[in-house]
């Protein structure tokens, strides 16, 4: 799967993006038989560039995929992870779906709201935290579950959640690693994680190297 070559108009649309993002764009467009398929990954790249999905970002993605702005907006707004407002440095997502709910997720959420001073669905004034409740994260065996920039901690209690918030606020780690957080603040897990891996998130964008928000990429 060869990286795509971009036309002049396409390059123009992302001329203010970083070189690494421009390279990602080429690679992503090369991964699909139809460039429209790259809309979703490209939206993530646009979030890396702009912090969230901006109108300009959507316009750029529209140019890259041959769509109208309305079409890109239609896709972006369908999915929960394409955030449309500026986010805090740490996006803290608390699962409050059924299994987590049964094991006290609402208390975990309340503790996080209280400790951060940021109500559910909002971003704090200092830009450190965005707090949200989310639906099931596929970790019900380790309920309740919290994600920080989509990196997971399982078996969180209200107390541990407060500590997690403090650690984030005071330590302000640049890379949020799931293993580290799990060790410090986690409890029961859905299954044996077995082995530590070095990667983690540097942004509230899923840290999946092909889209860029992993350690070492930006």
């Amino acid at each position: 799967m060869k990286p795509a070559t971009l036309s002049e108009a396409e390059m123009d649309a992302i001329s203010d993006w970083s070189e690494s993002s421009q390279q990602l764009v080429r690679e992503l467009l090369g991964k699909y038989p139809d460039k429209r398929s790259a809309v979703m990954p490209l939206l993530y790249v646009s979030m890396i560039e702009n912090g969230y999905v901006t109108a300009e970002g959507m316009k750029s993605v529209a140019v890259l995929t041959g769509l109208t702005g309305a079409q890109v907006q239609s896709v972006a707004s369908f999915y929960s992870m394409y955030k449309r407002e500026e986010l805090g440095k740490y996006l803290v997502s608390v699962c409050t779906s059924i299994s987590c709910f049964l094991l006290g997720a609402d208390d975990v959420l309340a503790a996080i709201e209280d400790e951060t001073g940021v109500p559910d669905g909002e971003t704090g004034h200092d830009g450190t935290f965005t707090v949200e409740h989310v639906e099931c994260n596929g970790a019900c065996g380790g309920a309740p579950v919290v994600l920080v920039n989509y990196e997971m901690v399982e078996g969180v209690t209200a107390e541990k959640a407060r500590e997690l918030v403090k650690w984030l606020r005071d330590g302000g780690p640049d890379v949020v690693g799931t293993e580290e957080m799990q060790q410090l603040f986690g409890g029961a897990k859905s299954f044996d994680w077995a082995v530590r891996e070095p990667e983690g998130a540097v942004l509230p964008v899923p840290a999946f190297a092909p889209y860029g928000s992993a350690r070492g990429v930006k």
């Binding site: 702005g69 309305a70 890109v72 907006q73 999915y79």
Partner: peptide
């Protein structure tokens, strides 16, 4: 186009 999902869906331009 449609925007948003579920009960929040609306028709709108860009």
């Amino acid at each position: 186009e449609f925007k948003d999902r579920g009960n929040a869906v609306q028709v709108i331009t860009f």
